[in-house]
Design a protein around this nucleic acid. Structure first.
Length: 426
RNA sequence: GGAUGGGUGGCCGAGUGGUCUAAGGCGGCGGUCUUGAAAACCGCUGUGGGCGCGAGUCCACCGGGGGUUCGAAUCCCUCCCCAUCCGCCA
């Protein structure tokens, strides 16, 4: 979330930004409520001071009658304070709801636009899309021919959107994890495996909404836990409430988790096969930086994504995400879209965001500079290294051969243990 | 899951209803002394917020939330976490 004072002081800017992002929030109401809240706070503090003085004087009073009189006085004061306090809390609650709805500011270079139609292509990857001398199949057809994914059983066991990976698809999943983690570890990312569940408070701190009609989140009944939609949630929550020494920054992690998404309201949109599923495995990058480091870190995360996909020999383009498509926490976001011959279009495979201090403020993660007074919020960034399900789509569709087999990308061969997925002869 | 003991400032640690304005120590910063350093001694040393041009000053914070009381680090309820033991388990 944004700083309360900042919102009041830069009301017009915030309003314009909300408009650019297509987020309807009553910023004027926020400003008005905040002013009322401040006024109430001053009153409450004054009454508290008086009540404290009286309480102290009771301890020192010798005369019992005097004590009783003071006590009565104290009771009355505290009674008044309580009413005001309740009002203050009510205001604060309302403000908090509004404040959480206000999205992060947007990078001046981020293209302004309502949705992904306005995304700006920046550049393409090293590998050009293959030209096929035959009509390319999509990954669902390939997976069926090569016995790689069992969608029917997945649906039977857990419902539509769940699946079993089989045979080489399993080896590919493991190989992709290994490939990503090794490359990232060499670049100074600390590898971690993370909880697949998190407290709703942590979800909210990262900008995810655990409950409600539009939620993308599965929640666990009779608990305040939810299944995570990405390791971004747990990695961000990892340092919640902490104050770090500035010299320790930046910190880089890569976390492996399963990701669970209800995909409410997404039916009918690219739901075929592995593209939009309720569960997948992901290797996620996450960084904590000082504010002046975060722009360079975003480029670094984007570079890592490019290196991973160039290394896999997959064609892709990188887009600068439009303001309307940024979501709440991101200040700037780059998506990497792989070419998917089966669909004949680019499809998002990774995404990296600079969330500046938006998540840190909610999660209360700060840093301290030696010799400086006070603390400041650090910046958080996240980026997909490999989302297995979508990477599988890109690999299967781009590496398919005329004979129906699929080549394994060179960098994965040692882990998969073969160079080609052969069709089962029937 | 059961039992017990805990959670206090950057760290250790005292504090069971009112000079807590949180003792004491360690660490850190500044100073005195010294050729320099160490030691010794003296002073300062948390976070967030309000008001003020400012020196300042006030409010809140002792794991989170709630309660009792004129007054809570301290008493009560509840949740979370940590330690140890027991049970169960991959």
């Amino acid at each position: 979330m944004l700083d309360r004072k900042f919102i009041v002081d830069h009301c017009e800017l915030v309003k314009q930004n909300c408009a650019n992002r297509g987020v309807p929030v009553d910023v004027d109401r926020f400003v008005e409520l905040e002013q009322r809240r401040k006024a109430r706070q001053v009153e409450v503090e004054q009454l508290n001071r008086q009540a404290n003085e009286i309480s102290k004087s009771i301890g020192k009073a010798k005369d019992p009658a005097e004590r009783e009189a003071r006590k009565e006085q104290g009771r009355q004061l505290r009674g008044r304070t309580q009413a005001l306090q309740a009002e203050l809390e009510q205001l604060a609650g309302e403000l908090d709801t509004l404040q959480r709805r206000i999205p992060n500011l947007s990078h001046p270079d981020a293209p302004v636009g309502a949705d992904d139609q306005a995304n700006l292509e920046l550049f393409r990857g090293k590998t050009p899309p293959a030209t096929f001398a035959f009509p390319p199949l999509d990954h669902v057809q390939l997976a069926e021919k090569l016995d790689l994914v069992d969608f029917e059983s997945g649906a039977g066991v857990a419902g539509h959107g769940f699946y079993f990976l089989k045979n080489e698809a399993v080896l590919l999943e493991l190989a992709l994890q290994r490939y990503a983690v090794e490359l990232l570890a060499r670049e100074g990312f600390t590898p971690v495996t993370t909880p697949d569940l998190a407290r709703n408070e942590v979800l909210a701190g990262t900008g995810y909404i655990p409950r409600g009609p539009e939620t993308q989140i599965y929640s666990i009944e009779n608990s305040d836990l939810s299944l995570v939609a990405t390791a971004e949630i747990t990695l961000g929550g990892m340092l919640a409430g902490q104050t770090l020494d500035a010299e320790r920054l930046p910190l880089k992690f890569c976390g492996i988790s399963h990701c669970f998404r209800t995909e409410a309201g997404a039916h009918g949109r690219a739901t075929r096969g592995l593209y939009r599923v309720h569960q997948f495995t992901k290797v996620e990058m996450f960084a904590f930086t000082r504010p002046e480091q975060s722009e360079a870190m975003l480029d670094h995360l984007r570079d890592m994504e490019c290196r991973l996909f160039d290394g896999l020999g997959l064609p892709y383009r990188v887009v600068d995400t439009a303001t309307g498509d940024l979501g709440g926490p991101a200040y700037r976001k780059f998506d990497l879209e792989a070419w998917m011959p089966g669909r004949g279009e680019f499809g998002e495979v990774t995404s990296t965001s600079n969330c500046t201090d938006y998540q840190a403020r909610r999660l209360n993660i700060r840093f301290r500079v030696k010799g400086e007074k006070g603390t400041r919020f650090l910046h958080t960034l996240n980026g997909t290294a490999i989302a297995i399900s979508r990477a599988l789509i890109a690999i299967l569709e781009n590496y398919q051969q005329a004979d129906g087999s699929v080549l394994i990308p060179e960098v994965l061969r040692s882990w998969v243990g073969k160079e080609r997925i052969e069709g089962v002869s029937t």
